[in-house]
Design a protein around this nucleic acid. Structure first.
Lengths: 231, 231
DNA sequence: CTGCAGAGGATTGTTCAACGATTCCTCGGT
DNA sequence: ACCGAGGAATCGTTGAACAATCCTCTGCAG
């Protein structure tokens, strides 16, 4: 925990504008997304508040924000911890993804569609893969699916799914072979993009559904193995 | 012993609810739902905290909760206000509803389905209508659609939609003829229930889509007229 | 050596008071 | 009627205090 705190102190410079609690949330959120605070880590009010130079009240407000986002869990009188997803959580995340993402594709109007965001995400994934940056590939994959949801043009749906994807990241952090988990989907994302460019919604929806089933299966498999190791 | 423990574990959710902030949230939420605090009302930390006898910190936590539910909006250094929905908000709510609710119906497995919750909601609506309790009818209608979403069996989807339905209630508060707005849908809910009982998913999905279109049209119409009156 | 009870320290839960910062509102001047 | 200055009101943040709870370590008995 010691080197994590010294690292955190570097972020102190970022505390400049807007609400302090929100800025602290932003910092912690990205630290969690990066895996800097792995799932299960306990976030002590004292040490983090000290490292960031904010009061306990402000820090607790940040914790509440992130707890609402499901990134932290709060245990009474024990503090907050980076969420550890259960297999059931992962399954529910994919259930929600399948429901919403497939519905988005299904609900697309007549082609052509504005697919720039999707194309950019695919390209990002390829670049990251070329450099062996598997965490970057994971980010690009998530980006792809966020862009996909964005095609629905619904602010609320976007936000709903944003938090679901943030949760999904938590699951990715417990795997030790990110390449095997993320690489295969670069090509499948590209395939979905191609099909959408031709305007074949139904094919895209079917591809997406199978994609999500496969991905869930893979993640759960790795997840169970990983949990088994620790037990 | 094992089943006793799992039974106990279910009650843990209730134990965590003893927080003062949550109770305050419950009070404020129902006040807002009742229209006691109409949209646009500013909730002062001082006066509400004083009236309820809780500290500012606790109250701010409650505000945070309700802000996350989109019932309140927070403006830096200005305080929190009961949300005022724009027509765009209403349209986006219905867009999300159509996306998710239709996807839920579409994604149902093979019949028969467990439709007790839906049937109860329909019955509640009829009872309320018989007594001329149009606010009760609105509540029953919302209840019907929450039960519909629950058929997907996804905790996350349920929660996502719960906040969308809470927002929808805000829209209902600006209308002055609740009967005209809510009564027609009792029969249509019953119709959807009937079709689901026969297992015809596709018919139900189509009915639901048209239902939502009609409902949106009606709400927007009333909404625009209402806003026009005030301008 | 193991198991258990209890003391003590550490951490969180909650409230309060204070001060700076920002916004709102009023008042006076042009 | 317009506009800026300044005071009032409110929010944002901090620090402190005290209670409640949890964790750890010690000492004792078996």
């Amino acid at each position: 925990m010691a080197e994590q705190l010294t690292g955190l102190a570097d972020d102190r410079a970022l505390l400049g504008r807007t609400s302090t609690a929100e800025r602290v949330s932003d910092i912690l959120r990205s630290r969690i997304a990066d895996g800097y605070f792995p799932p299960g880590t306990r976030l002590s009010e004292d040490s983090i508040g000290g490292a960031l130079g904010v009061s306990r009240n402000t820090l607790r407000e940040s914790f509440r924000l992130l707890t609402h986002e499901r990134l932290l869990v709060h245990e009474l009188n024990r503090g907050v911890f980076v969420r550890v997803l259960t297999v059931e959580d992962v399954e529910d995340i994919y259930r929600t993804r399948a429901l919403v993402e497939c519905a988005v594709v299904r609900g697309l109007g007549e082609p052509p569609y504005v697919l720039d965001g999707l194309a950019a995400a695919v390209e990002d994934g390829r670049l990251a893969a070329r450099e062996g940056d598997w965490k970057g590939v994971a980010t690009a994959n998530i980006h792809f699916h966020r862009e996909l949801v964005a095609l629905a043009g619904s602010e609320r749906t976007d936000e709903l799914m944003r938090s679901v994807f943030a949760e999904l990241r938590l699951a990715f952090h417990v795997v030790d072979d990110p390449r095997r988990l993320h690489e295969p989907y670069i090509a499948r994302n590209a395939e979905i993009l191609e099909v959408l460019e031709t305007g074949e919604r139904e094919t895209a929806e079917r591809l997406l559904a199978v994609y999500l089933e496969d991905s869930l299966k893979r993640v759960v498999e790795v997840y169970l193995r990983r949990i088994g190791d620790e037990g």
